[in-house]
């Protein structure tokens, strides 16, 4: 896909995610929209995957450490063909649904790791990356963490491990949208200087606009070229990106669009087509 097509795809995934939350009447749309461009670039352009073989040993792995953003993940897996036909009603968070409130590897095809309890994705990703090195596989492990999530101590245990083991097959996207459940990240802990912290831990670091497809592509290329170091790509994102009423309004950390708001989403993300 070219840049324009990827951008279009990201907006399409955004709509599928919002639709999923609207129909399911529960979920976290703001965090999902924040990472839509990263997820679209990974699943449609960057990752070595085969939806017909979700357990393929040589595939690239993906961990959505900030698991509450899963509507965008489920949207990408569905659109990419992991479930055969594209899913029209996900029954998100409903009893018996394979689309749980947070990603579950044994219930949803294509989910490489159960996640959602914040903080654990980097350490688990480091384990997967270690396994790749040990088994002489050339796959990459991609992890998306939230900026608020980085307050969890376990993150830094994993960051330490990945640097010490020189895991250059591990690439972490830090979704820096400056919000967390209770308010702004800076108000919560005083600062949000992610890049400097990773640097201090010995990581290869970059900071980009997390909604710029070309910048995401270029950053992944540079990350892959960094030898002997794991990489973090700090992505400046807008929580709720793509929907006028949702952008930068933290009330949408978790929430369900009204019928009126849903119509706006149809207009702004789906070209008016439901």
């Amino acid at each position: 896909m070219n840049t324009a097509e990827l951008k279009q795809m990201a907006d399409h995934l955004r709509f599928v995610a919002v639709d999923m939350v609207y129909r399911g009447k529960d979920g976290h749309p703001g965090p999902a929209l924040s990472i839509a461009d990263i997820v679209a670039t990974l699943y449609y352009d960057q990752m070595r995957i085969d939806p017909s073989r979700p357990d393929w040993e040589d595939r690239d792995r993906f961990i959505l450490s900030k698991g509450h953003a899963c509507p965008i993940y489920y949207a990408a897996l569905s659109e990419r063909g992991y479930f055969g036909e594209k899913v029209t009603d996900f029954h998100l968070r409903a009893l018996g649904s394979k689309f749980q409130g947070h990603p579950v590897m044994n219930k949803t095809k294509g989910v490489d790791m159960t996640s959602g309890s914040l903080g654990n994705g980097i350490a688990i990703g480091a384990g997967m990356a270690l396994a790749g090195k040990y088994r002489h596989k050339d796959y990459h492990v991609f992890v998306i963490v939230g900026d608020g999530e980085l307050q969890e101590g376990i993150c830094w245990e994993g960051i330490n491990l990945a640097a010490g083991q020189r895991l250059d097959n591990l690439i972490v996207f830090a979704d820096k949208n400056n919000w967390q459940s209770g308010g702004s990240v800076a108000d919560t802990i005083g600062s949000n200087n992610i890049k400097e912290r990773f640097e201090a831990f010995g990581w290869h670091t970059q900071e980009i606009d997390g909604h710029d497809i070309d910048a995401i592509r270029a950053a992944i290329k540079a990350a892959k070229e960094a030898q002997g170091q794991p990489s973090v790509i700090v992505c400046n994102c807008v929580k709720g990106k793509g929907l006028s009423f949702m952008e930068n309004d933290n009330v949408w950390h978790k929430g369900v669009p009204t019928d009126e708001q849903y119509k706006i989403a149809v207009k702004e993300l789906a070209g008016g087509i439901e």
Binding site: E57, R61, M105, D112, M113, N120, A123, I124, G125, A126, G127, M128, A129, L130, A131, G132, Y134, R135, G153, I154, E157, G158, N160, L161, G164, Q165
Partner: peptide, 23 residues
């Protein structure tokens, strides 16, 4: 032998990742 340092949560998480990759 994988040394993670004094970080038990990380040891368990890393082990989960290793196991998910077939080890």
């Amino acid at each position: 032998y994988v040394e993670v340092g004094i970080a038990e949560q990380c040891a368990v998480d890393a082990a989960a990742g290793l196991a998910a990759a077939g080890l």
